[in-house]
Nucleic acid binder design. Sequence first.
RNA 1: GUGAGUGUAGCUCAGCUGGCAGAGCAUCUGACUGUGGCUCAGAGGGCCGCGGGUUCAAGCCCCGUCACUCACCCCA
Length: 418
Amino acid sequence: MKYKTLKGLQDILAPDIPVWQHIEAVARDIFRTYGYQEIRLPILESTEIFTRSIGETSDIVEKEMYTFQDKGGRSVTLRPEGTASFVRAYVEHHLYNNPAPQKFYYMGPMFRYERPQAYRYRQFYQIGAEAMGIEDPNLDAEIISLLSAILRRIGLEGLNFEITSIGCKACRPGYREALKNYLRDKLDGFCGDCRRRYDLNPLRILDCKVPECISSRQGSPPVLDYLCAGCREHFDGLKYNLDLLKVPHTINPNLVRGLDYYTKTAFEVTSESLGSQKAVAAGGRYDGLVDEFGGPPTPGIGFALGMERIVPLIKGSVKTSEGPDLFICPLGDEASVKALVLAEQLRTHGVRIEANLESSSIRSQMRKADRIGARNVLVLGEDEIRKGEVVVKDMTTGTETRTPIDIQELARLIREKK
RNA sequence: GUGAGUGUAGCUCAGCUGGCAGAGCAUCUGACUGUGGCUCAGAGGGCCGCGGGUUCAAGCCCCGUCACUCACCCCA
């Protein structure tokens, strides 16, 4: 085969389209009830937008970005995630001047140059939400509840909601040091990856699945004990609110965010039905990011859910596309032209029509009508044309009705047979 | 970037110890001259991933290479 999609990119075809549309429709509907507005963002940004916000040493920036020079010699990057682009737009358009909270959602492709595997692609689609301007944990609870509502309405079951607090600029460095101090003389007991993580992202060691690491890290200082008073109070407030809203959740102090800008609340939704890439949605608070982009200090919180990880979970429970209401079966060249005209007229009445536009045997046409799942077949042959009639066959019952060619009447007949 | 597995028809896959390239499904046609589904018959469709080597002979053995898949890493 000469041409094929690039590695990690995929075409989304007919059988999956109704599933995607279902997810998007549910999300839009729920966002509407929570007062979220859609925002459409470019997928290409100045590289700096991402390096500054996500963090120079994060994996995303270090090795996963699609970065290239445009014709003007500027370094541009296909967005690896949505929040950085969103905050750039938020500041650029002074959206902070609107009454808080300002709430937005977006859907679209993201790009990361990773080795593809099950449920992980180089171009992947996210539905994201961002809520700005409120620091109170009430907003955290509301947005997590919103995420929960979307996932529930989509039809997902058996998901795990995990939450934690990763502290803020004030308390996180302290914890990081405490952890490193604790681990310093125990490093020999850890895997190679973890020894590397010790300098890069020591918190990630707490999430390693290698058995020797799990036992070696026993007794390490718990993150949540190192939260400052403000973060502690905020996290307690969130837990209280989630209980109040009856959003089932577990506390996982070892949740790790790969992006530098997160503060306080971090959360993740996972499914055991997926492979090793089991995060369905994830998000967190980013109270310093607007500031970083040159706006006034503004708290924010957001999440993104991964379409490719939800689609396989609900595939099969979403109704797939249906066949046409009517298949027009012309016999002979004259009838073929009449079929074309008749189809156009009936469509204006909202009937879904598939007209066979080249004449072939009635046998093969009936076969085709059956194959594509047509509810009714309209037979238009020389005999019918001469008499100004058509035969309508109900494919479920097999009964045939001979009726005059009257558009109104035909449309009514087809509609009531639906 | 690292490791393992897999590459044969549109799809799912057989192919023995090296001996003419196969099945099921799908598509098209016919059996039924203007009637689908079931059944039966037939047809089209192959650079056996690619390149080299061994051999009288390679889908099969050897070397290389590419692609895909899963996993690590990381993440939605």
